[in-house]
Design a protein around this nucleic acid. Structure first.
Length: 400
DNA sequence: TCTGGGGTCCTAGGACCC
DNA sequence: TCTGGGGTCCTAGGACCC
């Protein structure tokens, strides 16, 4: 989907079309504020001048999406708000409305599924689609079906997307970047030297900042340069599996299937504080946040019908270093108090001398509720079995 | 006044078991 | 003085992606 978060906001505020707009994290209070200041008029009638500007933004956060107009100024995803404000102070800034974004995510995916049922989720705004057995999927190299999908999505959502069509997921993903926004790009195997090899290695899905740097150090910038290196050379520098993979992808080879179903591996909640907090001095505040995160993880598990056996925590210190601890319990749980107790034990095993910037709670080793035995914190049902409930196997932790 | 939140996968060492 | 070879599970960190 093209500039997905921002495009969803532009549906609500069409008067912002054509302007640089960036979407931050945050919560949806903007509508209320705007309405309060401009009476009970429709959101789309509120004048542009009433919207908050990036230069007035305070707080720590990153940009999740920028409109193409904002990107002209060098503003982009994952950029800190403060840096973005320097590049494009006049940009309008809106918070992400995650409920609305999820609604549109479900809508565009279900629209595709009606046309081409074999799809793989790739996060909130991306999917892989298997065209192979879709009627008309081979016409004009896939262009006809791609157009049909774009049209159907636009009719349902008024949102645009860009589609890449290729013999495999690796090349399709790269192709989808060629013609944004609202574009279609078809890549054949024979196009490899002309269209893929000139690209920087960082365009490969799976080569990030670290591998990109390391390759640069070896004198490898483009995918074509990567393709000239012997597998043995790459394996020597990156390990057997990664080296072999790098060589394969440089030659456009990817056999991975479109995976239509998968079970979640973990569920987590984390939060970056408005200011760095100290484990001792801000004990009460941290304790409240910690309890809330545990409750959120528990609610997420329950809502989705899962229980977890491993509970973990994550800290980010003021120097941005990350520490994680986790602990596997004797039984599965989705109970907020049980999660809080185990997470509390994890917290006792991690250094708390530096100020904290972020705290997170994670549930892993998941199982579908009903498929594994679960101990509940409900006192009526506890103590009946041979083993005590998980919550009582563990001493009450001293938090902070 | 840098640097979100929710994920997956991989590696590597140690415990433990047969 | 010598000290296997698998296998699984757990934990911590890190790379990467949307």
């Amino acid at each position: 989907m093209d500039a997905f978060f921002a495009s969803v906001e532009l549906l609500r505020y069409p008067q912002l079309r054509g302007l640089p707009v960036v979407i931050g994290g945050g919560r949806r209070k903007v509508d209320d504020d705007l309405l309060a200041r401009h009476g009970e008029r429709e959101l789309r009638l509120i004048p542009v001048e009433a919207f908050p500007l990036l230069k007035d933004y305070v707080g720590r956060g990153v940009i999740t999406t920028a409109t193409y107009e904002a990107r002209q100024f060098g503003v982009g995803s994952a950029m800190g708000m403060m840096k973005a404000a320097r590049l494009c102070p006049q940009a309008l800034v809106l918070p992400a409305d995650f409920d609305e974004i999820r609604r549109f995510s479900r809508l565009f995916k279900s629209t595709i599924a009606e046309i081409a049922p074999i799809i793989q989720d790739r996060g909130i705004d991306e999917v892989y689609i298997d065209f192979t057995d879709v009627p008309g999927g081979q016409r004009e190299g896939g262009k006809v079906l791609a157009r049909l999908i774009q049209k159907a999505i636009f009719e349902k959502t008024r949102l645009t997307c860009s589609i890449g069509v290729a013999p495999n997921k690796l090349l399709a993903k790269m192709a989808s970047e060629f013609n944004k926004p609202n574009g279609i790009s078809i890549i054949h195997e024979a196009d490899l030297p002309s269209r893929i090899w000139p690209l920087h290695v960082r365009k490969i899905n799976g080569i990030g900042p670290k591998a990109g740097e390391k390759l640069a150090g070896l004198g490898i910038q483009t995918i074509g340069e990567l393709a000239t290196r012997a597998p043995a050379f790459l394996m020597q520098h990156f390990g057997k599996a990664t080296g072999a993979w790098m060589h394969a992808v440089a030659w456009g080879r990817d056999e991975s299937p479109v995976v239509t179903q998968s079970e979640p591996v973990s569920m987590s909640r984390e939060t970056t504080f408005e200011r760095d907090l100290h484990a001792v001095r801000d004990k009460a505040e941290l304790g409240a946040i910690f309890t809330r995160l545990c409750a959120q993880v528990a609610a997420d598990l329950q809502r989705k019908g899962y229980v977890a056996k491993t509970i973990g925590i994550k800290l980010r210190y003021d120097d941005f270093k990350i520490a994680t601890r986790d602990q596997t319990a004797p039984t599965y749980t989705a109970d907020a108090q049980a999660i809080r107790k185990i997470a509390g034990l994890c917290l006792k095993r991690v250094p708390l001398d530096k100020r904290l910037r972020l705290l997170g709670v994670r549930a892993g080793a998941l199982a579908k509720v009903g498929e594994v035995p679960v101990y509940e914190s409900n006192p009526a049902s506890a103590h009946r079995g041979r083993a005590p409930p998980a919550t009582e196997l563990i001493a009450t932790p001293q938090l902070f």
